[in-house]
Write a protein that binds this DNA or RNA. Structure first.
Lengths: 223, 223
DNA sequence: GCTTTATTGATAGTATTACTATTATAATTG
DNA sequence: CAATTATAATAGTAATACTATCAATAAAGC
């Protein structure tokens, strides 16, 4: 079991899994396989049966790690926001100007992830696509409040708070930092999704990364 | 059948249903009942079986109107955007100042619906809550592109286009009117949802309608 | 080296969901 | 009155989302 202990990983709320997938080889295969399959099939068509076949295990074994595909998705999204927080820290420390820091943070949160390099067991490109297309489903459910009280959205909140703090540095009297940040995060996800699948809902643009630029400017004009 | 013809209703894409629910009493009960039940149970726990029991009919009869609960939800959302377009028109005609028109349109799109009066067969308060909590699920699916090509999102697009046109009146050179409008619409839905269920993600405010004010100001500062 | 324990695999089984099909009956329309 | 249509009643199927049991194996402790 020792060989799995020193993996680079974020501390993920242990109520989201039955058994820590980071503690075994099968667990790692569940995470890797689910990222592949959810990205490929969509959450609707993804099942634990298909996953278990994909990773050459059994349905019952997968159920020993996660009580449902919904919890598995929640785990992936928690991981994602842990990773994003880490990226924001990496890319904003040692920058004095809070406006510049805000621009950087918005870039991190709104840019398209195109390289998968940092973590062997996680394909960040696919995970980013999953978060864009599926993450809102983790809270658009009847028992949001219960899952909220279990801390399933805490990682997301931390990211929102961190960026809100930068906003308050720029304008200490600004009343709605959380609203602004979550509008930007969710908005950027929507725009990326629309741009790919329902382009008539967005504005055609040749610009290199119009979505990031749009939200950076929106935020700075607002403050 | 005649007695159902002169109901006030928006022209809804006929590919979304198998049989027009507006053409019969059972159809009307399906729509009314589904609004009650989806609002109450959430889409996840809503089934045609429960619906048919609720309206004292049978599962097979419901399936003659809609091929799936997903299509039924799509119908409701189409109706909602038809209604919102109508409300925008009602509340913006005869106003000369485009900035004032934009404020009004944003108010219509972001305010909480609290009275249910206009249409006998539709509970607008509940439908608004359904749209906030469930509408993104109509496009966050694997076959978005097919459903888009069938015109399932056309009503939403029309609303976005209508408001975009107001934006272009204010600033004819503005590059991202569609992005701005869809960011506002989806953002307001998120904020209302968060305010109710995950309040730590929003900003506590005593103000009467902070969400509407927030998005009105955001839009006007951006332009 | 042997026992205990933990991990996974193999298999089976259940309730519910998301449908489809068939037939009967009541209501409308021509 | 005949023909059509709408609905109800019933049955049935494949897939999903699980739960339970037991055996095989590998690792950990003594």
């Amino acid at each position: 079991m020792d060989r799995f202990q020193n993996r680079i990983s974020f501390n993920i709320n242990d109520k989201v899994f039955l058994k820590d997938p980071n503690s075994s080889e099968l667990g790692t295969k569940i995470i890797q396989g689910s990222i592949d399959l959810i990205e490929d099939l969509g959450l609707e068509n993804f099942t634990f049966k298909k996953l278990s076949q994909y990773i050459s295990s059994t349905e019952a074994s997968v159920y020993r790690y996660f009580e449902s595909k919904h919890h598995l998705l929640t785990y992936l999204v928690l991981w994602y926001w842990g990773w994003q927080e880490y990226r924001i820290i990496m890319r904003t420390t040692n920058i004095d100007d809070p406006k510049k820091r805000l621009r950087r943070a918005i870039k991190v949160l709104t840019e398209k992830i195109e390289e998968d390099s940092q973590f062997a067991e996680i394909n960040e490109v696919k995970l980013n696509r999953i978060v864009i297309a599926e993450s809102s489903k983790i809270y658009l459910i009847k028992n949001v409040e219960k899952e909220n009280s279990l801390g399933f959205f805490s990682q997301y909140k931390e990211v929102v708070n961190r960026v809100s703090d930068i906003i308050l540095e720029i304008n200490p009297n600004y009343k709605y930092p959380h609203m602004l940040v979550s509008t930007i995060i969710e908005g950027a996800h929507h725009q990326r999704y629309f741009a790919e699948y329902i382009p008539s809902l967005t504005d055609i643009c040749d610009e290199e990364d119009a979505i990031t630029t749009f939200y950076q400017n929106l935020a700075l004009k607002e403050l």
